[in-house]
Amino acid sequence: MEDNNLNYIENAIFEGVEDIKLSEELMEHIEKWKDKPGNLIMILHRVQQIFGYIPLNVAVKIAKELNIHLAKIYGVITFYHFFKTEKPGRHKISICMGTACYLKGAEKISDELQELLGIEIGQTTKDGLFTLETVRCIGCCGLAPVMTIDDEVYGNLKPEDIAGIISKYTNIKTGV
């Protein structure tokens, strides 16, 4: 157990990390747990519930509130699969890189998607709309190359189809 009578993280400088004001409800939760030993995981649960992941600036806030080190928080976050460090996009695009899809040009589809969305595999677009990832054979080889967006399967893809498909999802957001 650490005992820090001196709260020396509270005043530390975290450069480049935007200060965030946490909701009253979350602050209350932190306050409730603050003095209980072993509180970190219970607090992270609530953060994950609210944000869908643990943003860096919230982690920093917690470090200051609890007077614990960021190293400790990240050690814990990355150990437990429940906690995420990246915000997942609203829609998950999975490009199949199984053999059939690969042979039928999945790479071109993947390149097109990366270019259109301006992100790499494993990343999420700035607007938080899409997360891009690759998967192994999803069992629709007959439709190769294949991608899925959330639960929807798109097959027989050509690079030129991608923009149209993507716009269906962006329109949902921008439309009234």
């Binding site: 993280i9 530390a12 400088i13 975290f14 450069e15 480049g16 990390v17 860096l56 920093v60 960021l70």
Partner: peptide, 8 residues
Amino acid sequence: KARPLYMK
């Protein structure tokens, strides 16, 4: 001078 403990 004071220095940041962390920098992003």
